[in-house]
Write a protein that binds this DNA or RNA. Structure first.
Lengths: 168, 168
DNA sequence: TATTGTTATACTCTATAACTATA
DNA sequence: TATAGTTATAGAGTATAACAATA
């Protein structure tokens, strides 16, 4: 196995300068961490007949209260047309409803229905429990350190990413 | 804004026990970190007419050498039918090719074509550079700490996730 | 019989652009 | 004119199941 590292491979990570190697390694473990848990969650969501974007909308509404379409899009990084599609599917299942706003008749406010509220109230604690279990290999202090470092990293990325998104 | 936190919201994160709150916070910042960078990268990939799964396949082949379809699937957590689809699209663009394996005629080994090799050799360093820039808000030591904590977390998740995937 | 990979099907997500209605 | 949201279109990913060929 070791012998193969330098044969037949077009890109050889070992040949990068240390700083770059370190950064790549960090990204690889971050992505793996996210993907394995997220895929697992997506699997659990299917038992509730939900997709990750649909769960994202329900969760956001449950935590922040009724929102406009465009607010949902901004919060979840979706384009307007995509929000329409996801909300359509949730509405068809009876989990959310569009309520006309008196002040400005161009917009709606999306509400959870009673059924949608029940669903998220049932699913979210289970989801949270899995997150708690998943992170339980870390001590409380490690979790705090990790959270702080990720916060720092995420802030940096958002500052770079936003101008790109605007001009695109 | 502060006043809204407890009104009209179905789920109130503040009311969770501390351990769960900590865990949820960690997951939120991890997901945000991953998503903002990954979305940004997906945007850059479009300039090369590639999607993230397609890039994943090219990158894997470039780093590990020619692979079987099922190996690609395992490495990238894709089902067999999905690998077929992604590889089909890459083959149509002339970036990879299926090479018949002498020993076992059921399987192929997927190779990068010269064009595919050139593409990934051009794109990957740019990608790596963006990762380096993105992580440059952290000191070298912070990166190491972060990497180690994520490794620990990822290992735990993989052990839980795999049995689930097998039985499904 | 088990494994490798494909085909068929159906659905969701996503981006983009053109469009309607309201402001 | 600008904004909120929809519609239309097209492509890509995904899951699932049924299938072919080979071992």
């Amino acid at each position: 196995m070791k012998a193969r590292l330098t044969t037949g491979t077009l890109l050889d990570r070992e040949s990068y300068p240390d700083g770059r190697k370190e950064a790549l390694k960090l990204w690889v473990v971050l992505a793996r961490c996210f993907n394995s848990f997220a895929q697992n969650e997506a699997h659990h969501l299917k038992a509730f007949d939900l997709t990750p974007p649909q769960f994202g909308v329900l969760e956001t509404l449950a935590h922040l209260g009724p929102m406009k379409m465009c607010e949902i899009g901004m919060k979840l990084l979706m384009s307007g047309a995509n929000v329409t599609g996801v909300v359509d599917r949730l509405e068809k299942k009876g989990l959310v409803r569009r309520a006309l706003e008196a002040e400005d008749r161009r917009m709606f406010r999306i509400h959870l229905t009673e059924e949608g509220g029940k669903l998220i109230a049932k699913f979210f604690p289970i989801h949270a429990g899995r997150i708690e279990a998943f992170t339980s290999v870390l001590t409380s202090k490690e979790k705090r350190v990790l959270t702080d470092l990720l916060k720092k990293l995420g802030r940096a990325q958002r500052h770079e990413a936003e101008p790109e998104r605007v001009q695109a």
